[in-house]
Simulated assay, not measured.
Amino acid sequence: MDLHYLRIFYEVAKEKSFTKAANKLYINQSAVSIQVKKFEEILNSKLFDRSSKKIKLTYTGEALFKMAEEIFEKVKRAEKEMERIINLDKAKISIGATSVIGEPLLPLLMKDFISLHDEIEYDITIS
């Protein structure tokens, strides 16, 4: 499934208007209509009921809209998390050690290292 088509469909469904979606996406209304029509052809299913003045989602459109909402919410969360990681210059280190070395030595080494590098996340396994 092409996320480009899904995004256009999602905006039209959310705005309940091809024109409002076009404005939000910074493309013209006819391009939005063509893209939605093409998406319907790819899916081989009508997504909107255009028989009345107001557009309404079909049953298939409703189901797809709910899934698209979840997808774009996850995309938004991923973007925010990536931005946070990049802006904070975060990193993660995984350390594994045996109990012979790990238990007496690692706490001493990590204490100094953590005080110098508080932006780093740690995953330590001793076994």
Rank of each mutant, 00 (worst) to 15 (best):
D2E: 10
L3Y: 10
H4K: 14
L6I: 09
R7M: 11
R7N: 12
F9H: 11
F9P: 07
Y10C: 04
E11Q: 05
V12M: 03
A13F: 06
K14W: 15
E15G: 11
K16N: 12
S17H: 14
L25N: 10
L25A: 07
I27P: 05
I27D: 11
Q29M: 08
S30F: 12
S33H: 09
I34C: 12
F39Q: 03
F39M: 03
L43W: 03
S45D: 02
K46M: 01
F48Y: 01
D49F: 06
S51W: 02
K53H: 13
K56I: 09
K56M: 13
Y59K: 15
E62L: 14
A63P: 05
A63E: 15
F65W: 09
M67N: 15
F72W: 07
K74R: 07
R77S: 10
R77M: 08
E81C: 07
M82T: 05
N87A: 02
N87I: 01
D89C: 02
K90F: 00
A91Q: 13
A91D: 13
I93Q: 03
I93T: 06
S94P: 10
S94V: 10
G96Y: 15
T98V: 08
V100F: 10
V100D: 11
V100P: 00
I101A: 10
G102N: 12
G102Q: 12
E103Y: 03
E103C: 04
E103W: 04
P104T: 00
L106W: 07
L106N: 04
P107W: 01
L108R: 11
M110K: 00
F113S: 03
I114Q: 08
S115G: 09
E119F: 07
I120C: 08
D123W: 07
T125M: 07
